[in-house]
Computed example of a mutant assay.
Amino acid sequence: MLKLNYTDVGLYMERTMTNPELLMQERVLLAMRLGQTLHVEPGHASFLLPADIPELEVLETALHREYGSVVTLIAVDEEFVEVRLSGSWIAEDKDAHEGMFLTVMSDRTEFLIHKLWQMSEVHISSLA
């Protein structure tokens, strides 16, 4: 499972072997114990990757082989590609910009997406 945490300082992605239903259940229990509201809904999340990462072609090939993939790659311009994922959005309210997004796909695809995101973070950091 990929877990994308959207915060006020940006996106943090991690791969975890936790069952998504169990993770959601734990999050709901935590919110109830703290007296917080919680909004959970199916949805989409996206992030950008530099279009010049050579390993992007490996991901594209893997996605073509995977039936019913929850991932879509969209060319934004010459510099960036948008990776769009289907999954579940968990946040304090429906219109929140900060929250957690969970998606499940094949191990190989999760690994590739996570690896490319890590590479893009290093690439962007070196430009700053």
Rank of each mutant, 00 (worst) to 15 (best):
L63T: 07
H64P: 11
G68D: 04
K3C: 10
H114G: 12
P50C: 08
S106C: 04
E79D: 07
A62K: 04
P42I: 12
V71E: 03
A96I: 03
L49V: 01
L63I: 04
G99A: 03
R84L: 15
M24V: 12
Q25D: 14
L11G: 02
S126L: 10
A31D: 03
K115G: 04
L30A: 07
E98L: 06
M100C: 14
T16G: 13
L23R: 02
G10W: 05
R33G: 13
N19T: 07
M119D: 14
Y6Q: 06
Q25I: 09
A62W: 07
V104K: 12
I90K: 00
K94D: 11
S120K: 05
L30H: 15
S126C: 09
E60L: 13
I53V: 09
L30M: 14
L38F: 05
L73G: 02
E121T: 03
L38P: 00
R27C: 09
V76T: 12
V40S: 04
H64F: 13
W117C: 03
L102Y: 00
L63Q: 04
T16E: 02
S120G: 09
A96M: 06
L85F: 08
V104R: 14
T7Q: 01
V83Q: 01
D95K: 09
A62P: 03
D95S: 13
K94W: 10
W89Y: 13
T7K: 04
P42N: 13
H123C: 08
V28Q: 07
E78F: 13
G43R: 05
A62C: 11
D93H: 13
S126H: 10
L112E: 09
H44R: 15
R33Y: 10
N19C: 08
V71D: 05
M32A: 13
L4P: 00
Y6E: 12
D52K: 06
P54M: 11
E98C: 08
G10P: 02
L49C: 02
S88P: 05
I113M: 00
A91F: 02
A128H: 11
F80I: 05
V28G: 05
L116H: 02
V40A: 03
V40L: 13
M119G: 02
S126R: 15
P54A: 08
S126K: 14
A91N: 08
M1W: 03
V76E: 06
L63A: 05
L85M: 09
S46G: 14
G87L: 00
Y12F: 12
E121M: 07
M24H: 03
F111A: 15
E41S: 15
L85R: 03
V58L: 11
E60S: 14
A128T: 11
S88Y: 06
V71W: 05
H44W: 11
F111V: 10
S106F: 04
H97Y: 08
S69T: 08
R65P: 00
A128P: 04
A62Q: 03
L127E: 15
Y12T: 10
E14G: 06
H44Q: 15
T109F: 01
V122I: 12
P42M: 12
S69A: 00
S126M: 14
I74C: 09
F80R: 11
V76L: 12
E79N: 15
E21N: 12
L38C: 05
L22C: 07
P20E: 00
T7W: 01
L38Q: 05
S126A: 15
H123G: 04
L73Y: 01
E78D: 15
N19M: 06
L85P: 02
